[in-house]
Amino acid sequence: MIDAFLSVWNIVPESLQWLILTMLKIVAIVAPLMLSVAYLTFAERKIIGYIQVRTGPNRVGPKGWLQPIADAVKLIFKEIVIPNGANKFLFIIGPILAIAPALAAWAVIPFNEYWILADVNAGLLYVLALTSVGVYGVIIAGWASNSQYAFLGAMRTAAQIISYEIAMGFALVGVLVASGSLNLREIVLAQEGGVLHWFWLPLFPLFVIYFISGVAETNRAPFDVSEGESEIVAGFHVEYSGMAFAIFFLAEYANMILIAALTAIMFCGGWLSPFSGVPVIGEPSLFWLLAKISFFLFLFLWFRATFPRYRYDQIMRLGWKVFIPITIVWILVVGLAVVYQLPWWFD
């Protein structure tokens, strides 16, 4: 059986082999990602349900575990209503532009030392560039809908994402200085040696700012002004229905998982174990990365259930007047620490 397969495989030209293998790798990343997005919505409803003293979805399937599948099936079969006066082409292209970068950024995420789809040297820049592209989908969707609410939401999102990207970029400059590399795998390897050697400790302000900016970047509560329910109904996707809406939804949650993964990789040692040196549990493995991602995702949900929504101008003030100055100061501190080779982290 295997021999027969290999004999067929060897006939295939080498470039085609490479293409097929890459495609398979992409599927191996995107399929579990989509599944985790589906079950993240389930986790969200359950966790927020328990915070709000109710049980959350528990009717579809055993204990409600088929709920996300039912939601997906419903959304697939719903009609996509394109409003009168909307620009059809841009209306369709909006969600595609939103989801493409959210998925493409996963290409450089290292799942462990060897499992990386594209081990590029400028991985960090690639991630920053792609997360910025996501805003085009939102702006185009808001503009193409021909609705005032959608347009207001799109304008808010654009301004918010651009300002938080600066704080986020500065926070990552700190990581870059500390690790001396733009390659995500090497950033993780630079943090080897247990929980106290990870970057969250020396870069603590940057770590907090990066994560909060990430929440703002993905338009999650308390920074969800772009879809602020009681203010502008649903913001940029107010006119979307069916699968077009579902794609925005997927993009938002894929971005959440991405931000959680990046926070884990940049500041919390990626796949490294917090108990380095201890037998068995000290071994680096994919489990630790997933555990860290889950923890940060839980924080996303916890924030949403706890905080009221900031007003739009207050978000901008927080971004420009608080986060950016702190990050700039801390980059200097990190720079000095690296120059003078502060023991433990930078020696």
Partner: peptide, 16 residues
Amino acid sequence: SSGSFGMTTVYQWTVT
């Protein structure tokens, strides 16, 4: 009131 500022949790508590 808290719901109008985006705090849905308190709404569930009080309505209970």
